[in-house]
Amino acid sequence: MNRLVLLPLTSFLWLLSLHTVAAQAIPAKPNPTFPMGYIPGDVLFHCSGCKYPVYKNGDVEGMIRAIGENVRFPQHLQRDGKVFVQFTIDERGHVRNAVVKKGLQPGADSAAVQAVRLLGEFVPALDAQGRPIAVKQTVPVTFQLK
């Protein structure tokens, strides 16, 4: 029986504090010019008054559940693995620009991207002045053969 496993991972540090993530990428050599835990491109990293986006249908757990319900397991998948999908949550809370950052196989890649595109709305991220801003997230979708 084929099984799909979803693990939460975003480019936001708040999510890392909520869940243990087994598939987190760790650089081979630490870069001393950046603080520990810095993720390049995270516009909210140094912002103390900012708010991260929240999935409207159940926060992180709801997002994971929705991806699991939306994904179609590829018929000709030959090996286990993860597809890392990066997407933008725009100023209105919509998912935009879902792309594969690290792929597995073409069928799995397209299934993972399609599942992320079908996510519902988010409460958008807010800057320190309370204005909505666009931010990027990355989610790994793990495919497992049984």
Rank of each mutant, 00 (worst) to 15 (best):
A108M: 08
P35Y: 01
V54A: 11
V54Y: 09
S110W: 05
Q114W: 01
Q86R: 06
A125P: 13
Q144Y: 00
I64L: 13
L4P: 02
A128N: 08
S17Y: 09
P8N: 00
V60F: 05
A125Y: 03
R117M: 15
P40M: 02
Y55L: 00
Q144N: 07
L145N: 05
L104K: 05
K51E: 13
K146M: 11
V100R: 00
E91A: 11
I67Y: 14
T10Q: 04
V123R: 04
A134G: 05
Q137I: 10
S17N: 12
H76G: 12
V95L: 09
P53V: 07
V54E: 08
G49D: 11
A23F: 01
K136L: 02
F84K: 09
P8E: 01
Y38W: 03
G81D: 12
C50K: 04
L7W: 01
L9C: 06
N57K: 08
Q105A: 14
N57A: 07
M1R: 14
F143Q: 03
F12N: 05
P74T: 10
E121Y: 08
Q86V: 10
I39L: 10
G62E: 00
A115W: 04
Q137M: 13
L126T: 03
M63A: 06
R3H: 12
K102I: 15
R131Q: 14
V60Q: 04
L119T: 02
P32R: 12
E91W: 05
E121L: 11
V43S: 14
A112K: 07
N97Q: 12
G107I: 14
V21C: 03
V71S: 02
D90M: 10
G68S: 11
F143L: 05
V5F: 00
C47A: 07
T10C: 01
L126P: 02
T33F: 15
L119N: 07
K136N: 09
P53S: 02
G93T: 02
L7P: 02
R79D: 03
A134H: 03
V60P: 03
G107Q: 12
D109R: 08
V43C: 12
F143T: 05
N97A: 13
G107K: 09
G37E: 13
V100F: 01
A111D: 08
P124F: 09
A66N: 09
L126C: 02
A28M: 06
H76V: 05
F143N: 04
L7H: 02
A125H: 12
F87H: 06
D80S: 08
S17P: 09
K101T: 10
M36A: 14
P106Q: 13
G130D: 06
A23I: 00
V99E: 07
A125N: 06
I89N: 05
Y55W: 10
L119Y: 08
L145M: 14
P8Q: 03
F45S: 07
P40N: 11
